[in-house]
Measured scan of single mutants.
Amino acid sequence: MLYRITVRNADGEKLEIVVEMSEDEVRALAEELRKAGYEVRVEPIPEGEEP
């Protein structure tokens, strides 16, 4: 499935990426980023919607 991941650092800089991963993989990635001090938001992209 496609997911949009938005990551912000302490300075407020934002990075937005689209990935194709399983829900478990995305959850693990988000958890690791949060542990590293980043603010993370994950949104699933519905099938048929443009990323």
Rank of each mutant, 00 (worst) to 15 (best):
P44N: 11
V19G: 03
V42R: 00
A28W: 09
E23C: 15
E20A: 09
E16Q: 10
M1K: 08
I45H: 07
E16G: 04
R41C: 14
E47M: 15
K14F: 11
R34W: 04
E49P: 13
A10C: 06
G12T: 02
K35Y: 04
E47Y: 12
Y3G: 01
Y3P: 01
I5A: 00
R4K: 06
K14W: 12
R41W: 06
E47R: 12
Y3N: 02
E25I: 05
E16Y: 13
E32A: 10
R8K: 14
E39M: 07
L33Q: 01
I45Q: 05
V42E: 00
A30I: 06
V7I: 09
P44R: 06
K14M: 11
E31H: 11
E50T: 14
D24N: 07
V42K: 00
D24K: 05
E32N: 14
I5G: 00
V19H: 01
E50G: 10
E49H: 12
I5S: 00
L2G: 05
E13G: 12
R4A: 03
I5D: 00
V40Q: 00
L29G: 01
I5E: 00
G48Y: 09
I45W: 10
K35W: 04
E32Q: 14
R8H: 12
V7Q: 02
R34M: 07
P51M: 01
S22M: 13
V18D: 04
P51G: 09
E47S: 15
R41M: 09
E50I: 14
M21K: 03
R34K: 09
E50F: 12
K14D: 10
Y3S: 01
V18Q: 05
D24F: 11
M21T: 03
D24R: 02
D11W: 14
E49Q: 10
K14C: 04
P44S: 08
L2I: 09
A10W: 08
L2T: 06
T6V: 09
E20M: 15
E31W: 10
V7H: 01
I17N: 02
E43R: 07
E13L: 13
V19I: 08
Y38N: 05
E32D: 08
L15Q: 14
M1I: 08
P44Q: 11
P44A: 08
G12E: 02
V7D: 00
V40C: 02
D11S: 15
R8A: 10
M1H: 12
V42M: 04
E32M: 14
R27D: 05
V7S: 04
L2N: 04
D24I: 09
R8G: 08
Y38V: 03
E49I: 14
E31L: 10
P51H: 09
P46C: 07
V19D: 01
M21N: 02
M21V: 05
G12R: 04
A36D: 05
E13Y: 15
E13A: 13
L29T: 04
N9K: 15
R41P: 00
V26M: 07
D11F: 06
R27A: 07
E32Y: 13
Y3A: 02
V26R: 00
E32T: 15
E49V: 12
E20G: 05
R34N: 04
V42P: 00
V19E: 01
A10T: 08
E25T: 08
M21F: 04
T6H: 09
L29W: 07
V42A: 02
V18T: 06
E32H: 15
E20I: 10
T6G: 01
I17Y: 10
T6C: 04
Y38R: 02
E13D: 09
N9D: 05
V7E: 00
L2C: 07
P44M: 09
R4D: 01
R41K: 13
R4S: 03
E25S: 07
R4N: 02
V26F: 02
P44Y: 07
T6W: 08
R4C: 03
R8W: 11
A30S: 09
V18R: 05
P51V: 08
R34E: 05
Y3I: 07
I5H: 00
L33D: 00
R8N: 05
I5L: 08
E13Q: 13
R41L: 13
V26N: 00
E31R: 06
I5P: 00
A36L: 10
T6Q: 05
G48A: 12
T6S: 05
E16L: 11
E23T: 07
I45V: 12
E50C: 10
V40A: 02
L29R: 03
P46W: 10
K14G: 08
V19R: 05
A30L: 09
E13F: 15
E20C: 02
L2W: 08
P51N: 09
E47H: 15
E32S: 12
V26L: 04
K35G: 05
A10L: 13
V26H: 00
A36E: 04
E49S: 11
I45A: 04
D24A: 07
D24V: 10
A10H: 14
E23V: 08
E43Q: 09
P51T: 11
E39N: 11
E50D: 11
Y3K: 01
I17K: 03
E16M: 11
S22F: 09
P51Q: 10
A28S: 12
L2S: 06
A36Q: 11
V26G: 01
D11C: 07
G37L: 01
R34I: 04
E43F: 07
R8S: 10
L33S: 01
R27I: 11
I45F: 08
V26T: 03
A36V: 13
Y38T: 02
V18L: 10
E16C: 04
Y38C: 03
E39I: 08
L15F: 09
E47D: 12
I5F: 03
S22A: 10
L2A: 05
M1L: 14
A28Y: 14
E39P: 01
L2M: 14
E16N: 08
E16V: 06
E13I: 15
R34L: 05
N9C: 02
G48D: 06
P44L: 06
Y3T: 03
V19N: 01
E20Y: 15
G37K: 01
Y38M: 05
E23S: 07
L33E: 00
E50A: 15
P46V: 12
E32K: 15
R34G: 05
P44I: 15
L2K: 10
G37W: 10
E39H: 13
G37F: 05
D11Y: 13
G48P: 10
K14N: 05
G12Q: 03
L2E: 04
L33Y: 15
S22T: 13
I45S: 05
E20N: 15
E47C: 03
I45M: 08
G37T: 01
V40L: 02
K14T: 12
S22W: 08
L2Q: 12
I17R: 04
L33C: 02
M1P: 11
E23P: 11
E25M: 11
G48Q: 15
G12V: 02
V19K: 04
V40E: 00
P46F: 10
I17W: 15
R27Y: 10
R4Y: 05
E50K: 15
L33P: 00
R27W: 10
Y38H: 04
M1R: 12
G48T: 14
V42G: 01
E25C: 03
A10Y: 12
V40P: 02
L15A: 10
R4F: 04
A30G: 04
E43I: 10
K35D: 03
E20H: 11
A36T: 11
Y38L: 08
